[in-house]
Structures are given as structure tokens and as C-alpha cells.
Design a protein around this nucleic acid. Structure first.
Length: 569
DNA sequence: CGGTCCGCTTTTACAAGCGGACCGGTGCGGTAAT
């Protein structure tokens, strides 16, 4: 079968590393034909792409599946078609209410059926939510869209249980790893919610996923022997460059000058809300149609900026990381970062918003070492000891307690409670059972606090190692694209010829010979101090390994071999 | 961690330098106040 190049699928448990080429000569032509039929008759698509067909087939045959595919490739088609081939409605977990509304509208338009897709959330009236549940109960709704916070509610789980869903879709699944630990703790509770629904097939979808992020999605969602389909990450039409700066002011001038000179439209990412407004003002003065966008704007203002950008009424949107999900504008010509991001994953996701039409586009990172400070601050944070004490003492009855009762007896708000429970579960001090949360054994306050602090410290170390990797991108002398592709697991590429280090020749000077060590990318290894890890990249003189306890570590190959530091697991 | 702002000091400024305080991202849901 042609068109499969660049696609790999791996089977087995997350720790299993079997990588298989997608097998085109499938024995289940039946499923494929039915999928193609649904695509044609229900959605009006002439045919399915290779990754899509493979994915639909796996899901329909009962496998859990993680699909990592570029935005615009058609991830939504996978769950839409699979849902039509399966009994029961599909529960679609989506991070933003605005995205839910988009999907509901598109599905209604496509199928000419208002009850086909419904959403339940806090932005709708109580009567609209009631009507949505009625459509689910009657079987009229094929899709129900929910934020993870909804799945934390007993009432919601009961209604879904009764509807006997055939599929749970987790859209933008990288949010599990990016947001679950602090920002939106209900993302870490999704696995338990899925179990509660009897573990229907799980389909996780995302456009970004380095190996550790993929592993975490699979683990946190409790996916069983999942199939993993990974599309190619390369976006060769995007020119990559980093410009280094000494002083803040000089950096800002360079950013403004560059943005004014580029072919429009484009995106300018900055770190703070204040900077979005300030730089948007300056760019307006310099003749561009510019607007600021950040999470602090009123809903109406956000919608309006989004609309103007999408409709081509803006040259540049100056935004924090709030701007992104749900943007599918094809002709964005550049993404400029005035500040470094918190990880390579975030950086590449934001960069990926330009050049979707395949035409040349540019991505420039303006980098100062001092900018890492803000990211370090965001990576920090401490557990609230008073809350931990309240929750552990409320749990000391020894009886399993539902979250609702626990919020009441501990005096901790429902939302903060979820965060504390996540930490206690990760510290292996609390277990979730069918009828509530329970301590695994009697625990003294001091021990609980020490254990929780350890979990938080481990998270911080991992976040800091992710920051170190994006710093590595900013400072590398090698080909920028090779660096990114290796980060995402595509080893053995050549210098790309379309980045600043290739242009300066530096990439070729530092293009390492083929690695000849015994280590290979993706291999699971064990380190005496840091425990289990996974090889991320192998270079001439060093190895990059992601350890579950400390995050990314760059190791000298000479030392590793001399001391026998890493043993295959 | 780094920047900005404010107020204090200082061989009395149409000023400058310093130290401390404060701030900084992503969104859900529900509640309180109009």
C-alpha cells in the first residue's frame, strides 16, 4: 500500500518497544470497507487516509488507541467514523468549551441532525444541559462532548453509565500530561472515570507527543495494550531559526523589526499578558493590523480576536499560550517567539501553527538566557501542607469515602481536593476504590507531607529537565530540525538545509557520525541512581535519556560505557 | 528567576542609586452580587 511511508505503529504495553510498519494488507477489509462507506455517505469524504483507516480499524476491532497526528490531518474523522460503526454513543473529552461548541456545530451541519452531537457544560443553561442528557438517554445523540471536570461528577458518570458508551475519546490528549499535574487536576482522574464506565474502547488523540508524553497519556488514562500510531513530525516548509540576545530592550526591538518586515499574517507569542497588549500597541503604531490575545480578556473579546485572525482581518495576533487550540488557519506565514516556552513540546506545537498550507513559513525564537527564569518560576510550586493534613485526617476513618463527602469532612474545596488526592495517589498513600478514596495504611501527618513533597519535587525536576531540553534547542550548534525530530523520536535524519545552523554551516560541522554504541533510540534502560529510563537520542559523544524520576538527562557516552552506567532493562 | 515599581536615602539634585515588595500562564465550574 502506498502513502504509508512515515507512519509507524507500535503494539504492546507502553514499555514494550515493538515498532511495526503499518501493515497495508489487512485481513479486516470488512471494517475498512464499512469505514469508507460511512466516510462517503455520512460525512461526504471520498476516502480515508492511511493513518486514519488504520486507526478506525483498530478502534472498531476493540483496541485502545493513541493517535499522534499533525493538526489538519483529520484526527476527528477517526472517532467520528468509529463511533458510527460502534454500538452506543461516544463520550468525547475536550479541554475547551469553545472547541466542544465547534465540533457540535460541525457535526450537526454535516449530518443535518441537531441531536447527533450534544455538549454538557457550565456555559449552557440548565435546560440546554437537560435537553442534551435527554438526547443521550434516548439514543439520538451519537456524541456527547464534556470537559474532564464534568466526569468528576457522580451524576454525570451515572448518566453516562446508563447510556452504555461504546467509545471514550480524549481529544487534545497531551493536556493529560501538560495540565493534569497542577492546572486542571481532573485530567489525572480520567483514567478512573473511564474504569467507572466499564472501560469502553479508549481513543486518545493529539498532535504533539514526545515519547515521555505518550507514555504518560497511556498510563494515566489506563489504556490497555494500546495501539500507538504516530505520524511524521517533520514540517519541512517551516524555516527554523534562533536569534540570541543579550539585553531585553534590544531583543524587543529585534522582535518588532522582524515582525514588521515579515510576510503577513503571523503569530507573535510572548510570555505575559502585559506584553501582548504592549507589543500589539507598538505594532499597530507601526502600521500593522495587530491585536492582543490572552486568557484574561473577556469571552467576547477573545472570540472577536479569534474571528478577525481567522477571517484574515489581522496581520498579527500577539498572544500568550492561550491562543492556539482550535485555530486551523492554513496560511499563517510565521510564528515568532519573543520568549522561550516551557518545553520543546510546547514550542513545536506553537510553531506548527504556521505553514499548514505547505507554503514556505518561518519560525523564529528570540532567546535570552534570562528568560528561562520566568519558566523556572512557573515550573516551581509547593504542595499546601495544611490541605494535605486536612485530607489525610479526613481519610483516617479507614472507610472508603467519595470525593464529595471528603470535600465536606476535610473542609478543602472540591477543586483543591482533587489536586491533593492526585498527589496522595501518586505517593501511593491513597487508593481509589469503587465506593471512594481510602488510605492504604495508617499514615502520620509528617509522613504524608514528606511523601507529597517528594512527588512535587519529582514533578519539578521533570519540568526543569523539559526546560533544559528547550534551552538545548535554543543553544544547539547542530541542525535545529534534527534536534527537534530527535526529541520526538525520529532518529537518523540529515541536516535539513532549511534552518539557521544549516545556513551558517554550523550544523554540518556538528553533524555527528552514525552512532555506533550499543544503545538505540527508544530503548528502555536502567541507571543505578535514577532508575528506569528511555533513550531519547544517541549522538557521537552523548546520550539523552528520559528518566521517570528526574526527567531528561544528557549523559557522556564515554562515561556510560566506561562505568557501565546504563543496563538494558 | 528576573523585571518593575515604589519609596527611601543621600555631604541637599533641574538626581541617582539601592533595597524590598510584588508580579508573572494555561480553563473549568459554581457562587455571589447586581
Amino acid at each position: 500500500m502506498n502513502g504509508c511511508e512515515g507512519w509507524v505503529a507500535s503494539a504492546g504495553h507502553i514499555l514494550g518497544g515493538t515498532v511495526l510498519k503499518v501493515n497495508g494488507s489487512s485481513h479486516s477489509t470488512d471494517v475498512r470497507e464499512r469505514a469508507a462507506e460511512v466516510a462517503r455517505t455520512v460525512f461526504g469524504w471520498p476516502s480515508l487516509r492511511p493513518g486514519q483507516a488504520e486507526a478506525v480499524e483498530a478502534v472498531v476491532e476493540g483496541q485502545d488507541l493513541l493517535a499522534v497526528m499533525a493538526t489538519g490531518y483529520g484526527k476527528s474523522a477517526i472517532y467520528q467514523i468509529a463511533a458510527h460503526l460502534l454500538e452506543g454513543p461516544a463520550v468525547v473529552v475536550s479541554p475547551l468549551i469553545a472547541l466542544q461548541a465547534d465540533q457540535v456545530r460541525h457535526l450537526a451541519e454535516r449530518t443535518h441532525d441537531d441531536e447527533e452531537a450534544v455538549a454538557v457544560n457550565s456555559s449552557q443553561s440548565a435546560s440546554a444541559n437537560r435537553a442534551a442528557w435527554e438526547s443521550v438517554a434516548s439514543g439520538a445523540a451519537e456524541f456527547v462532548f464534556l470537559a474532564p471536570e464534568q466526569l468528576a461528577k457522580e451524576e454525570v458518570l451515572e448518566r453516562l453509565e446508563q447510556a452504555r458508551p461504546g467509545l471514550v475519546v480524549v481529544d487534545e490528549a497531551h493536556c493529560v500530561s501538560a495540565w493534569g499535574h497542577d492546572f486542571r487536576p481532573d485530567y489525572l482522574r480520567l483514567g478512573a472515570a473511564i474504569e467507572r464506565l466499564g472501560h469502553p474502547r479508549v481513543l486518545a488523540l493529539t498532535a504533539t507527543g514526545s515519547a515521555p508524553v505518550r507514555d504518560e497519556i497511556v498510563e494515566r488514562l489506563g489504556m490497555r495494550s494500546p495501539r500507538i500510531i504516530v505520524g511524521g513530525f517533520d514540517r519541512p516548509n517551516i524555516r527554523l531559526a534562533v536569534r540570541r540576545h543579550e539585553h531585553d530592550h534590544e531583543k524587543e526591538q529585534a522582535v518588532l523589526e522582524q515582525v514588521v518586515g515579515l510576510e503577513q499574517p503571523g503569530l507573535l507569542y510572548v510570555a505575559t499578558r502585559g506584553d501582548t497588549e504592549r507589543l500589539a500597541d507598538v505594532l499597530s503604531e507601526r502600521g500593522l493590523r495587530a491585536a492582543a490575545y490572552h486568557g484574561g480578556l473577556k469571552a467576547g473579546e477573545r472570540r472577536e480576536v479569534h474571528r478577525r485572525f481567522s477571517d484574515g482581518e489581522l496581520d498579527v495576533a500577539v498572544a500568550t499560550s492561550a491562543f492556539g487550540m482550535g485555530i486551523d488557519k492554513a496560511d499563517v506565514r510565521y510564528v515568532v517567539h519573543a520568549d522561550i516556552t516551557d518545553s520543546v513540546d510546547s514550542y513545536y506545537q506553537e510553531v506548527g501553527r504556521c505553514g499548514r498550507d505547505g507554503e514556505p513559513a518561518t519560525a523564529t525564537l528570540h532567546y535570552r538566557q534570562e528568560d528561562l527564569g520566568l519558566r523556572r518560576f512557573f515550573a516551581g510550586g509547593k504542595a499546601d501542607h495544611a490541605r494535605v493534613r486536612s485530607v489525610t485526617s479526613a481519610l483516617s476513618t479507614g472507610r472508603p469515602t467519595p470525593a464529595g463527602d471528603l470535600a465536606e469532612s476535610s473542609g478543602v474545596s472540591a477543586r483543591a481536593l482533587t489536586g491533593v488526592l492526585n498527589l496522595l495517589i501518586e505517593a501511593e498513600l491513597v487508593r481509589e476504590e469503587a465506593d471512594g478514596f481510602t488510605l492504604v495504611r495508617k499514615v502520620a501527618d509528617a509522613e504524608a507531607i514528606r511523601a507529597v513533597d517528594e512527588v512535587v519535587d519529582r514533578r519539578t525536576r521533570i519540568d526543569e529537565s523539559r526546560l533544559a531540553m528547550v534551552r538545548g534547542f535554543a543553544e544547539t550548534l547542530r541542525c535545529r530540525r534534527q534536534y527537534l525530530l530527535e526529541y520526538f523520536g525520529d532518529a537518523g535524519t540529515e541536516p535539513c538545509g532549511n534552518c539557521d545552523t544549516c545556513e551558517s554551516g554550523s550544523a554540518y560541522e556538528h553533524d555527528d557520525e552514525d552512532a555506533t554504541s550499543g544503545f538505540r533510540v527508544d530503548e528502555r534502560v536502567e541507571h543505578p541512581e535514577w532508575g528506569e529510563g528511555r533513550v531519547m537520542s544517541v549522538e557521537d559523544d552523548r546520550l539523552t535519556v528520559f528518566f521517570e524520576s528526574v526527567g531528561y538527562k544528557v549523559l557522556s557516552r564515554e562515561l556510560v560505557e566506561e562505568k557501565g552506567l546504563l543496563a538494558p532493562e
